[in-house]
């Protein structure tokens, strides 16, 4: 191999404060990045985004044609339904409110929001980033999973297991009763 001196092919301009350090093979800018781990946004990201956009819209349209949004009789303050239920995502709260309005309706939701906001300031150790259910984060992940499961159970109980007078009912029994 013949030695090529860089000073000969790319002579340094004495007025410049910077200079060519090295020549490498390749066609793409790779400054400061691991080249094999990066891909261009166009087309890799944008095509995926379009696919999701189109699929979501299509699914919604199909759902809209086959499942009607509920619409009951016109509002009437004199005819409370039995039971009166909040929107489904608040039924967990309503379940708690049925035990204690202050604790279930104010204290617990307030605590949930406060703790959620504080999460990244309480748990700052840089482990388990970018990995699903990392072993190092087993405790944090278990706690959050427990929180999600409890909320889900409360919502399911509020939605399906609460009948007239907010009494506990078993959904399949209620269907038989009608």
């Amino acid at each position: 191999m013949r030695e090529v001196k860089m000073e000969n092919t790319h002579p340094r301009d004495p007025k410049k404060t910077y200079g060519l350090m090295e020549l490498v093979k390749g066609t793409k800018p790779t400054v400061g990045l691991k080249p094999d781990k990066m891909v261009f946004t166009w087309p890799h990201v944008l095509i995926r985004e379009m696919i999701i956009f189109v699929s979501v819209s299509a699914l919604l349209l199909v759902a809209a044609f086959f499942i009607d949004a509920p619409l009951e009789a016109i509002a009437n303050a004199n005819l409370p339904p039995n039971p009166a239920k909040a929107p489904w995502y608040f039924l967990g709260l309503q379940e708690l409110v049925s035990y204690s309005a202050l604790v279930g309706g104010v204290v617990i939701p307030g605590l949930i929001v406060t703790v959620l906001i504080l999460v990244p300031y309480l748990d700052r150790k840089k482990v388990g980033i970018g990995i699903w259910f990392a072993k190092e984060r087993a405790l944090a992940n278990s706690l959050f999973m427990l929180f999600l499961v409890v909320m889900l159970i409360l919502i399911i109980v509020g939605t399906f297991f609460r009948g007239p007078n907010w009494d506990f009912v078993v959904p399949w029994e209620a269907v038989k009763g009608h």
Partner: peptide, 19 residues
């Protein structure tokens, strides 16, 4: 403004009243 709406919001805003 149907029954579902009216009572869900009656119940929901009453919960806020407990603050």
């Amino acid at each position: 403004w149907d029954q579902l709406a009216f009572w869900a919001i009656t119940v929901g805003t009453s919960i806020a009243g407990y603050v």
